[in-house]
Amino acid sequence: MREFNAILKNEIIKTIKRPRSFIGFVVVAFVCIVLQAAMHSDGGEMIGFVTSSLENTLSIKGKVMNGNLICFILLQTLIIQMPLLVALVTGDLVSGEISTGTVRFLLTRPASRTKIIVAKWIAGIIYTLLLLIWLGVIALFLSRAIFGADDLIYISSEALTVIPADDLNWRFGGAFVIAFLSLSVVASLAHFLSTILENSITPIVSTMAIVIIFTIIGMFDLPSFDVIRPFLFTTHMISWKDMFEDPVNMAGILKSCAILFVHILLLLGGSIYIFNKKDISA
């Protein structure tokens, strides 16, 4: 166990210290701050566009443009981009070492290949978690500090729902947990492809290509796609939004979480199997 911890510590330090790991944190901060500034100046206009059909007969009282709404908008915007940031780091964890040849030094250690690949996977998951915590700090807490906290207006295809401010923390908490599971699938996929492929760019591009293809299939409301849609992880990646439905469809959320979890297990299992069988001679 001590040996595994040492490998894990080493992998975490290697992952965090790489320059490309900081790109994700910078991009998240940049996008959040730019959007917050834009919302500060033009947010009222955007809200007016959404509520214009209501305001013929109703007058909306209270602070619609507030930190909770900004956080929701930021999550909605960034969850689409986050897989790229995650894949950028996790897609290179194994293939990067294979292409540079450093993997051979790694395998000279007494630890088993399984321990090495699992340590790399955990390092990727910790990076994903840190990125999400960073997003949470900037999107939720900074937005609340700038715009204040008030009720959230959640717009779905069926209704406009006003969620009270004191009913939001657990929903945001749940949304971040689901987002973490979703991004962990992306990290696991990139890690899996990184184990198969020996080039450091291809797993990153392949991961993004898979995410994009699955998202497009999920978006088209065609009967032929209905059969496969429930099995695509991208279908369940946006389940975090269900935390804001009233009432919350817990059964649906748990089902999505279970499917995401199964994806993670299968991809990790696949990585372990392939890495153990891999002929590393380069």
Binding site: L54, I60, K61, G62, V64, A159, V162
Partner: peptide, 30 residues
């Protein structure tokens, strides 16, 4: 529109000043 019941305080002053103060977002007729 889905919105939970809420409590607040109503203020009126002649001839036409009217306001409801409540914590949160709510709707009144225009």
């Amino acid at each position: 529109i889905k919105i939970k019941p809420m409590r607040g305080r109503v203020y009126y002053k002649r001839p036409d000043k009217f306001r409801i103060r409540a914590k949160g977002i709510f709707f009144l007729p225009k």
